[in-house]
């Protein structure tokens, strides 16, 4: 059996496969389908300081090879998560708390609440900054650096991962900005902004009009961005965007990722994550026979450009 262990920011994961935030809740529902302790970690549903009701429905649309979502961060709030779900989830596997805010102080406060309680904090910076005309924190490098710095200052014990938005001027610039702000790692890509139209009604399908695009169709964009970001910084990168199988995960690892997240495929196949874990093991065994790949972590950054 191939060695699937990876280490991200000092946190040892039994394998590099993590369900992505927003597709997996806090893990309880999927745990009724399979034992989620097989996962490397779980990235939680995005948490905010106060409970949020989210957007009106429809919140989901589909296009060829991709979906669009506009859930609007519905969540029970960080306090409820800590009191009701955290202990259970930590008993299963490593916990990456995905957090979001509307102001810089929101980010600081929510990070302070979670410090020392979770294995990693993942910063969702695709949210609009209400004090900055609604422009997302994740677009301009100076904003990325600032929100990272505020969050990092509040985290004395737990390492900080910044989840980069692909809706950025430059992914490499924003990766460097997060590193300069004190990030211990990066994850990318968050969803791309899209629009799907109901042509009979001449209206957007989503109540929110636009939504975040994810799924198999975004994978080449995501792999390119993971390559650019991981080569721009010295901190570890978690890759995601359209992973449907073990071979997709290997692409992200070769592009420079230490671990991967799987999102939309959890909807297509509820057993996607365990299948990808098993597939990675098999792939490494075959690759070991052919190329001497013994450990999945040895794949990271092995891409040679033409």
């Amino acid at each position: 059996m191939a060695d699937l262990h990876v280490n991200i920011c000092g946190v040892e994961l039994k394998n590099p496969v993590i369900p992505a935030s927003g597709t997996f809740g806090f893990g309880r529902e999927f745990d009724e389908i399979y034992d989620i302790s097989c996962l490397g970690a779980v990235a939680t549903k995005g948490l905010t300081l106060e409970p949020r009701l989210g957007n009106p429905t429809p919140r989901i649309a589909e296009s060829r090879g991709v979906i669009l979502n506009a859930v609007g961060l519905q969540n029970p709030g960080v306090k409820h998560f800590i009191e009701h779900d955290l202990a259970w989830l930590r008993g299963k596997t490593k916990v990456i708390a995905n957090v979001a805010g509307a102001t810089l102080s929101d980010y600081g406060e929510i990070c302070a609440r979670l410090d020392g309680l979770v294995d990693l904090v993942e910063l969702n910076i695709s949210c609009p900054n209400v004090k900055c005309g609604g422009m997302a924190f994740g677009i301009r490098p100076q904003d990325v650096k600032e929100v990272t710095h505020v969050s990092k200052t509040a985290l004395k014990k737990t390492p900080l991962i910044v989840k980069l938005s692909p809706n950025a001027e430059s992914i490499a610039e924003n990766a460097r900005a997060a590193e300069a702000g004190g990030a211990d790692g990066l994850s990318l890509i968050n969803t791309l902004t899209g629009l799907a139209i109901d042509i009979e009604r001449r209206r957007p399908i989503l109540a929110n009009n636009t939504g975040g695009v994810s799924g198999a169709g975004v994978k080449p964009i995501a792999v390119r961005m993971v390559y650019e970001a991981s080569h721009a910084v010295g901190i570890p990168v978690i890759g995601m965007g359209g992973i449907t199988c073990a071979e997709d995960a290997v692409e992200f690892l070769m592009a420079g990722a230490v671990a991967v997240q799987v999102g939309t495929q959890n909807f297509t196949d509820a057993l996607a994550c365990p299948k990808i874990i098993a597939g990675l093991g098999k792939w490494c065994e075959v690759a070991h026979a052919l190329h001497g790949v013994e450990r999945v972590r040895d794949l990271t950054g092995t891409l040679t450009m033409n």
Binding site: T23, G25, E29, T57, R59, A61, I67, V71, N266, F267
Partner: peptide
């Protein structure tokens, strides 16, 4: 009836 994604209660897409 509502548009759904996961169908099991995890993704919060199909709320009323």
């Amino acid at each position: 009836e509502e548009r759904m994604a996961c169908g099991i209660g995890a993704c919060l897409v199909c709320v009323c």
